[in-house]
């Protein structure tokens, strides 16, 4: 890491003034990051709409070229065999096995749950996945199929994927899913309000949904494909974290582009900086478009390098995916047996 230039330090300082009344010395920081020492809380910035706007617009801008370059550089890292096996098992354990189709049937959800419990029959070394992610009306089926396994049931809610519904409907959607037994809720933010600059409204919604969640974990989907800039991704990340998100999630998977490495990098930085600022650990979920083991391992490298090894855990990083699991299993078998595997030996969904 190189020490920040004076100008950068000044810029960071100015950006953080609304956040912190007292002046704090800045740590060494790389160009795109925002690291704060000590503990603080975000309650002041969320106290009023104008303070929130000042804070979000005071966040240092994301160096687009720099962040893309860094993500691309990390993607070239070579992972040796022993580490690869570890990475594969870790990645399998981080998968939120997802089915979010209009054509979902109880039978399909049950078969997905069976796969979630035992991804590779006959190979007990392969862990089960972190969670199964379904639409709210399928939660009861999934809970039933996964009872006693420790696998979480995640439900999308709040008028997924567009989020275009009245707040009471979004809250009812959330409460129903929780009542049916979902212990993780994936909500979407109101991108329309966010892009129009009504940050307070977005925040209030997140807080309201968080309350409706009760004990269930809340993942806040930013839908980065619709946010247009990395600056917006950073703002939305901080907004979601301030609203109480346990995870921030890249995408619904219904919009292209979905998850990309640079976007995930920006979100990981937000979570890392948030932890440094408040001492609270939050997670990141990358969803959509991650189909190959190669991609998944690149994300793990990114997590390790940006947020740190502490985030290499299913409680702190997740993959939202369906076909990725099959590729992970095929590669796992390749590593275990030394022979290239075939898609004929894994289930289609």
């Amino acid at each position: 890491m190189r020490p920040p230039t004076d100008r950068l330090a000044d810029a960071l300082h100015r950006a953080l003034l609304p956040l912190l009344e007292s002046e704090l010395p800045l740590l060494e920081s790389d160009m795109t990051s925002l690291v704060l020492p000590g503990e603080a809380d975000l309650s002041e910035v969320t106290a009023s709409g104008s303070a929130l706007r000042r804070f979000l617009h005071g966040l240092p801008g994301v160096d687009q070229v720099g962040v893309e370059k860094r993500a691309a550089t990390l993607a070239t890292r070579s992972i040796k065999r022993a580490s690869k096996v570890q990475a594969l098992e870790l990645a399998i354990g981080m998968v939120d096995l997802t089915t979010l189709e209009g054509a979902d049937t109880p039978g399909r959800v049950r078969s997905l749950c069976a796969k979630a419990r035992i991804p590779a029959p006959g190979y007990p070394d392969v862990p089960s996945v972190a969670a199964v992610c379904v639409y709210p009306d399928m939660v009861a089926t999934a809970v039933d199929a996964l009872s006693g396994t420790g696998i979480h049931v995640a439900s999308v809610a709040t008028a997924f994927p567009s989020g275009r519904a009245h707040l009471d409907i979004k809250l009812a959607d959330t409460r129903n899913a929780v009542a049916d037994g979902a212990d993780e809720i994936d909500m979407v933010i109101d991108r329309g309000a966010f892009l129009a600059g009504r940050y307070g409204q977005v925040l209030d919604e997140i807080v309201a949904v968080k309350n409706a969640c009760g004990d269930a974990h809340l993942k806040v989907i930013l839908e980065t494909g619709e946010l247009a800039t990395y600056d917006n991704v950073r703002r939305a990340s901080w907004l979601a974290l301030a609203g109480g998100a346990d995870f921030i999630k890249t995408s619904t998977g219904k919009v292209s582009p979905a998850s990309t490495l640079p976007v995930t990098l920006v979100m990981l930085e937000a979570v890392r900086d948030h932890a440094a600022l408040t001492g609270e650990i939050r997670g990141v979920k990358s969803a959509g478009g991650i189909r190959t083991t190669k991609d998944a391992i690149r994300y793990l490298v990114l997590v390790n390098e940006v947020a740190g090894a502490a985030w290499l855990h299913p409680d702190r990083f997740r993959f939202g995916a369906s076909s990725l699991l099959n590729d992970l299993l095929m590669q796992w078998h390749k590593q275990a047996t030394g022979r290239y595997w075939t898609s004929n030996r894994v289930t289609i969904d």
Binding site: G338, R339, Y340, W341, T342, S343, N344
Partner: peptide, 8 residues
């Protein structure tokens, strides 16, 4: 051997 062992 790689071709012969490839399961696909």
């Amino acid at each position: 051997p790689i071709l012969a062992g490839h399961l696909d």
